[in-house]
Amino acid sequence: MFFFLDSEIRQLAYNLFPGGNKPIGVLVDLFSITYEIRKNMEKRSREFGLSYGQYIALCVLSAQRDEMSSPSALAEKMGVSRAAISSMVISLEQEGFINKYDDPNDKRGVFVSLNDKGRSKIQQMDPFFVGLASRLMSDFSESEICQFQTYLSRVRSAFEDVKGSRLTDSREEREKWCED
Results as ranks from 00 to 15, higher is better:
residue 156 R to P: 03
residue 43 K to T: 09
residue 54 Q to F: 00
residue 18 P to F: 02
residue 21 N to Y: 04
residue 112 V to H: 02
residue 35 Y to P: 04
residue 17 F to M: 11
residue 172 E to P: 05
residue 22 K to D: 08
residue 128 F to A: 08
residue 67 E to A: 14
residue 111 F to Y: 15
residue 144 E to G: 11
residue 79 G to K: 03
residue 177 W to G: 08
residue 39 K to Q: 07
residue 100 K to F: 05
residue 92 L to E: 03
residue 172 E to C: 02
residue 24 I to L: 15
residue 75 A to S: 08
residue 5 L to G: 02
residue 148 F to E: 11
residue 143 S to C: 10
residue 52 Y to Q: 00
residue 30 L to V: 04
residue 82 R to G: 12
residue 7 S to R: 08
residue 142 E to C: 04
residue 102 D to G: 15
residue 179 E to I: 08
residue 2 F to N: 12
residue 10 R to D: 04
residue 169 D to Q: 11
residue 72 S to A: 05
residue 75 A to H: 02
residue 49 G to F: 10
residue 38 R to V: 00
residue 167 L to R: 07
residue 51 S to A: 06
residue 107 K to D: 13
residue 136 L to T: 02
residue 133 A to L: 08
residue 108 R to H: 13
residue 53 G to C: 02
residue 157 S to I: 04
residue 93 E to I: 00
residue 51 S to C: 03
residue 141 S to M: 12
residue 16 L to V: 11
residue 104 P to T: 12
residue 49 G to V: 07
residue 16 L to M: 12
residue 177 W to A: 10
residue 38 R to P: 00
residue 90 I to G: 03
residue 144 E to Q: 15
residue 160 E to W: 03
residue 14 Y to V: 01
residue 81 S to D: 09
residue 54 Q to Y: 00
residue 79 G to V: 08
residue 147 Q to D: 13
residue 29 D to W: 01
residue 54 Q to G: 10
residue 157 S to L: 09
residue 111 F to R: 03
residue 169 D to W: 15
residue 51 S to M: 06
residue 179 E to K: 04
residue 55 Y to S: 04
residue 43 K to V: 04
residue 172 E to I: 06
residue 102 D to H: 14
residue 119 R to F: 01
residue 147 Q to N: 14
residue 49 G to R: 07
residue 71 P to L: 04
residue 110 V to Q: 06
residue 118 G to V: 10
residue 70 S to T: 15
residue 15 N to H: 06
residue 48 F to W: 09
residue 125 M to H: 02
residue 33 I to Q: 06
residue 176 K to W: 12
residue 20 G to H: 06
residue 155 V to D: 01
residue 92 L to M: 06
residue 147 Q to S: 13
residue 179 E to P: 01
residue 154 R to S: 05
residue 21 N to E: 12
residue 39 K to N: 07
residue 27 L to P: 00
residue 63 A to K: 14
residue 137 M to G: 14
residue 108 R to D: 10
residue 124 Q to K: 11
residue 130 V to T: 14
residue 157 S to E: 12
residue 179 E to Q: 05
residue 101 Y to N: 10
residue 154 R to I: 05
residue 14 Y to R: 04
residue 37 I to Q: 02
residue 100 K to E: 10
residue 129 F to W: 10
residue 157 S to F: 03
residue 65 R to F: 13
residue 124 Q to D: 09
residue 151 Y to K: 14
residue 178 C to N: 07
residue 25 G to V: 05
residue 108 R to F: 13
residue 130 V to P: 00
residue 149 Q to R: 15
residue 124 Q to M: 12
residue 43 K to H: 11
residue 69 S to G: 09
residue 76 E to H: 10
residue 101 Y to L: 14
residue 142 E to S: 14
residue 118 G to Y: 07
residue 109 G to R: 05
residue 153 S to I: 08
residue 19 G to I: 00
residue 145 I to W: 09
residue 68 M to R: 15
residue 171 R to V: 13
residue 78 M to W: 14
residue 145 I to Y: 12
residue 128 F to V: 05
residue 8 E to L: 07
residue 100 K to A: 07
residue 160 E to Y: 05
residue 155 V to N: 02
residue 125 M to V: 01
residue 33 I to A: 08
residue 77 K to F: 02
residue 36 E to P: 00
residue 8 E to K: 06
residue 131 G to S: 09
residue 156 R to D: 11
residue 118 G to A: 11
